[in-house]
Design a binder for these strands. Structure first.
Length: 765
DNA sequence: ACCGGCTCATTTTTT
DNA sequence: ATGAGCCGGT
């Protein structure tokens, strides 16, 4: 069988079209359950199988590690089935891991040291607090969280501090600019990047070095972006930038499943794709293979109420199946019991396994009651989301030891562990070190060491600090001499006396922490197994920063899944309960506040996402009364329930008193209360890696790229230069020699950028 | 340096 | 209702 037959067999016509159309921009509007991943993987296999491009000339970007892994797995599988040989690695990444991959190679061109650290949002927040202290900004009047989100928003728009300054004139923004600037310079000192930086710096890199960009533009002959409706502006810019040379950009998404505008996703990116690429081919995948007809039709009816969407209608040839079960209960306890009882009953009737059931809710707080009721009926469940593994205190602590050992400039890591476990180095001492460090413009680690030499502290304190420094120096040494990650982990646990301290403590919390550290040990073992020689301390830290949940790695117990509607995207279950379908909860009251219809539309998309997760049967429940923040509230049933056509739903109530029956116009409410009337129950490596990866310098594909600019006439202070992206400017500082010769240029708009002359296309003017 | 009580906020979550 | 984070007292 030839490649074409192989990759298109068992596909419907639009799917086939999507797999076959390789050249030019393609927009695939993929409805829920329409076989999107299948199309993407087959398309990749098609490209590789036909030999149009090799595996490493295709860039595929997704949003979550999970999606990337799944895609990679399926892609390798079909390639193997096809008998295709792959000679290089596939570039299936999340946006962030793609950027890390680029930056790991080229970040020195942005004047960072090669092994930058990655800060998660809590590290970022600490950093912002640190900066605010230095700037003497009151945390009460200006909460650090606000700055964090503003800075993040700016970065998602691709705005540097200077860019932000120009773009806005409002008062608070002036402060934001100030904090942003200082934050930026602190991050540079710490040689670390936050999540937004990963995207932003990559964008900057490509803007500063057009030749480098060109190399990647030419390398990636085909680009595919999954979940395009969730891209934010900087991601959009990156994609546009990379796709420029070949214009072989294929984006896949569903505007009806855009539920992340509140974190910067811009639905316009998908809605306006045809404006960006007028020659784009539009392919709609509208046939749903997942759900019963009743579910598909109900979801379709709901989403039809949105105005901001493309013309796309989901259909299915599946059986009608059961009607949507709409259920009213008295309060959230009864609602939870209804869910638990139904699962129990169905399980007793032999309907699937616990894994087949999922319960979705709008807010995390709703999970508690559900958990109680499931426990009461001894139904195993697992909660997805909530506190993430790597965000747990003990995990972050130990990782901070490792981070600091590798990057002594990481002040945030140092502050985290200098007195954990307690070493008698108190708040005052830490503040003094911090002050000392900022005065001399050195890292806190250096400052601590200098402070000891210069007898800044009394003998006792000096001794304590000395011991900490010695510990860290030892760990720095071990990082080199014990290259095996698992060994190193054991050393850190031991030498830091972290584990010892927990073992002394006999509280159940300490016990749980020890278990988590064991879990981390397992994760490390797993990581070593997967990566082999590449399982270095650095690659592990990177993995921990970029991979969300270790929990999902192991346990495969049979249990009911509880999660928010947001997390449910991309998943499917035979039996789904969506609870709390009430106005002001879902749609949330916030979305109703501003009378903008936009916000409600996003909630509606969320409802659509939730409903379309169900394969066989869907329950939607609401309550007459619910306790929210200690207050009893009565809310009418969600508009989304009412938007489902009468004939598709089966309404029952177990709540006495006035009913919302008229809102439904439903006549059927044989309450079936008997079974629920019972009284309520009780409460309830660096160098080795370098050698392996082809570095920027030996990019043989682009011979002229290398030579260009490298031997240009010397640049010196005061010289006027022109940069292809930023225009004219003046050199006001130079540093380094030979390959490392760098110049700082101030452009006409007062922005300053530092270039590696060898790679920047600077022209004298 | 540590603990305990107080205030406050509280959609949604990835990386 | 609940938990996290902060301030102030010991």
């Amino acid at each position: 069988m030839d490649v074409l037959d192989f990759v298109t067999k068992d596909l419907n016509p639009p799917q086939k079209d999507a797999v076959v159309t390789l050249d030019g921009p393609v927009l695939i509007l993929a409805g829920a359950g329409s076989g999107k991943t299948r199309v993407l993987t087959h398309r990749m296999a098609h490209i590789i199988g036909q030999g149009v491009a090799s595996a490493d000339e295709i860039l595929c970007v997704t949003f979550t590690n999970k999606a990337a892994k799944e895609m990679e797995h399926r892609c390798y599988k079909i390639l193997a089935d096809m008998g295709a040989r792959i000679h290089s690695q596939l570039w299936i990444n999340t946006f962030h891991s793609f950027c890390v991959r680029i930056l790991r190679q080229h970040i020195t061109m942005l004047d960072y040291k090669p092994f930058f650290g990655i800060y998660d949002s809590s590290d970022t927040l600490s950093q912002i607090k640190k900066v605010m202290t230095a700037l003497d900004i009151n945390d009460k009047m200006y909460p650090a969280k606000n700055f964090q989100s503003r800075i993040s928003q700016a970065k998602m728009l691709g705005l540097t501090p200077e860019g932000l300054e120009k773009s806005s004139k409002r008062l608070m923004d002036q402060k934001t600019v100030e904090v942003y600037k200082a934050y930026e310079s602190e991050m540079r000192k710490a040689n670390s990047l936050d999540f937004d930086d990963l995207l932003m710096k990559t964008y900057e890199l490509f803007r500063m070095y057009p030749d480098l960009l060109k190399m990647y533009q030419e390398k990636f002959k085909y680009i595919m972006v999954d979940e395009y409706q969730d891209t934010n502006h900087i991601q959009y810019l990156l994609v546009q930038m990379l796709a420029k040379a070949h214009r072989n950009l294929c984006v896949v998404g569903d505007e009806d499943q855009s539920i992340y505008s509140w974190r910067g996703a811009d639905i316009k990116n998908i809605l306006d794709f045809e404006k960006d690429f007028p020659e784009a081919k539009i392919i709609k995948l509208e046939e749903n293979y997942r759900s019963t007809a009743n579910i598909v039709n109900a979801a379709t009816a709901v989403i039809k109420n949105n105005t901001e969407r493309k013309d796309k209608t989901l259909f299915t040839s599946n059986d009608a199946g059961d009607k949507i079960q709409v259920r009213e209960e008295k309060n959230e306890y009864d609602e939870a019991r209804f869910v638990a009882k139904n699962i129990q009953t169905m399980m007793n009737e032999g309907e699937g396994t616990y894994n087949d059931y999922a319960v979705f809710y709008r807010t995390n707080a709703q999970s508690r009651v559900l958990e109680e009721q499931l426990r009461t009926l001894a139904i195993p469940y697992r909660l997805v989301g909530g506190v993430r593994f790597y965000e747990r205190m003990e995990i972050k602590d130990i990782l901070s030891y490792m981070k600091l050992a590798i990057n002594p400039a990481d002040d945030i890591a140092l502050k985290r562990i200098i007195n954990v476990p307690a070493r008698g180095i108190g708040k005052t001492t830490i503040e003094k070190i911090e002050e000392f460090a900022s005065k001399r413009n050195i890292s806190m680690f250096e400052a601590a060491s200098k402070a000891c030499e210069e007898r800044i502290f009394n003998a006792g304190t000096t001794g304590k600090i000395r011991r900490f420094i010695e510990l860290m120096e030892e760990l720095q040494g071990s990082a080199v001499s014990f290259p095996k990650l698992s060994q190193y982990y054991a050393i850190v646990l031991d030498r830091s006396e972290y584990l010892l301290n927990l073992k002394k403590d006999e509280s159940p919390e300490a016990q749980a922490r020890i278990e988590n550290l064991e879990e981390l040990d397992n994760a490390i073992a797993q990581f070593e197994k997967e990566r082999g020689d590449e399982a270095t301390i650095r690659s592990f830290l990177e993995e921990m920063a970029l991979v969300s949940d270790v929990d999902t790695l192991n346990q495969e117990q049979n249990s009911v899944t509880l999660m928010t509607l947001h997390i449910s995207k991309g998943l499917e279950y035979p039996y789904v309960f969506v609870v709390g379908m009430e106005e002001n909860l879902f749609p949330s009251s916030r979305s109703l506040d501003n009378d903008g219809e936009e916000d409600v539309e996003e909630e509606r998309r969320l409802a659509y996402v939730g409903m379309t997760r169900a394969r066989k049967k869907l329950w939607l429940t609401f309550t007459k009364m619910r306790r929210v923040w200690g207050q009893e509230q009565m809310n009418p049933p969600s508009r989304f329930i009412q938007e489902i056509p009468q004939e598709l739903k089966d309404f029952k109530t177990a709540a006495e008193g006035p009913r919302f029956i008229n809102r439904y116009g439903s006549s059927s409410y044989d309450t079936d209360e008997s079974s629920y009337a019972s009284p309520r129950w009780g409460s309830l490596s660096s160098d080795r890696n370098k050698a392996r990866q082809p570095s920027f310098d030996d990019a043989q594909d682009f011979p002229d790229y290398e030579n260009e600019g490298s031997s240009k006439a010397a640049f010196s202070k005061g010289m006027r230069v022109r940069h292809p992206t930023f225009g004219a400017g003046t050199i006001y500082a130079t540093e380094g020699t030979g390959e490392n010769f760098k110049v700082s240029v101030m452009f006409t708009d007062n922005t300053v950028k530092k270039f590696v002359v060898k790679y920047a296309r600077l022209e004298r003017i």
